[in-house]
């Protein structure tokens, strides 16, 4: 399936980040730690946007702000034209540590969103079935997260976010704890899932291969305070090949543009 930036409706952004900054009180309480500065960008419908950058600084904070889990100290975030003021089920989140509820079975995890929102029983069941099928976990309904492998847990995490049928999906380094090979598999899986069930995705990673494999657009972030250094439109055909010369060329180009923080 082919898809390039031409398909994205540039006209109406589903998410707008307007001059967002975030500072925290420093540990000694005397000063401020500026983590984000002057973030300006839009995200368009059904776009796969990757926020890419090194280090631990800022990326997760930015994602939390976009999702409404944290508030900026400067600027605003708009979702579908409305100011984001808190978490909402229209925005789904997939975590780095998966953050599944360990005392719930796979199906209860996936059904959590629909259930707390009091959707009809039948609808909940249908969604659990549909999204477990989408991520390829049919048959594991009764398993507990601790019985699953890392890759499978991430699939549950993705299904759980999808089950609320959100407009925008936020993914915070979801494959960061997986080994290199499982990671390749999950990247291919996510691409398949995303092409099957189109959503706007904002994906944070520090892995350049992952960014290039998945993204319509990559925003390169720099460190401390985090701000936007460069944007890249990625128009290579899908599915992409990790060792294709163009892939490797872009990889080199973007890596060279990163800051090395030791």
């Amino acid at each position: 399936m082919e898809r390039s930036e031409g398909n994205i409706k540039k006209k109406n952004p589903v998410l707008e980040c307007r001059n967002v900054g975030r500072s925290f009180d420093s540990y000694d309480g005397k000063g401020k730690n500026e983590v984000l500065r002057g973030m300006n960008f839009e995200v368009y419908e059904n776009e796969f946007l990757v926020l890419f950058g090194a280090g631990q600084c800022g990326k997760t904070t930015l994602l939390n702000i976009l999702a409404g889990l944290d508030m900026p100290t400067e600027g605003e975030v708009y979702a579908n034209g409305e100011k984001v003021s808190g978490p909402a089920p229209e925005r789904g989140f997939v975590y780095q540590k998966t953050s599944l509820f360990p005392w719930m079975t796979v199906e209860d995890n996936v059904g959590f969103g629909p259930k707390v929102r009091h959707l009809p029983e039948k609808e909940c069941k249908e969604r659990i079935r549909k999204y477990l099928d989408l991520v390829g976990l049919t048959g594991f309904e009764k398993s507990y997260p601790s019985q699953l492998s890392g890759g499978m847990r991430q699939r549950v995490g993705i299904a759980r976010a999808y089950a609320n049928e959100p407009d925008i999906m936020f993914m915070d380094e979801p494959f960061g704890h997986l080994d290199a090979q499982t990671r390749y598999m999950m990247e291919e899986e996510l691409q398949r899932i995303w092409q099957q069930e189109k959503r706007t995705v904002i994906f944070v990673t520090n892995n350049i291969e992952e960014a290039l494999f998945l993204a319509d657009r990559i925003i390169l972030l720099t460190n401390c305070p985090t701000h936007i250094k460069q944007e890249y439109s990625i128009t290579m055909q899908r599915p992409r090949d990790y060792v294709d010369p163009e892939f490797l060329r872009l990889r080199q180009l973007i890596t060279d543009n990163m800051d090395l923080t030791l």
């Binding site: 090194a54 280090g55 290199a180 520090n206 892995n207 350049i208 291969e209 890596t255 990163m258 090395l260």
Partner: peptide, 11 residues
């Protein structure tokens, strides 16, 4: 170096 970002890993 499994969890490090790419530049750091190269380095």
């Amino acid at each position: 170096y499994g969890q490090l970002d790419i530049q750091l890993r190269y380095h």
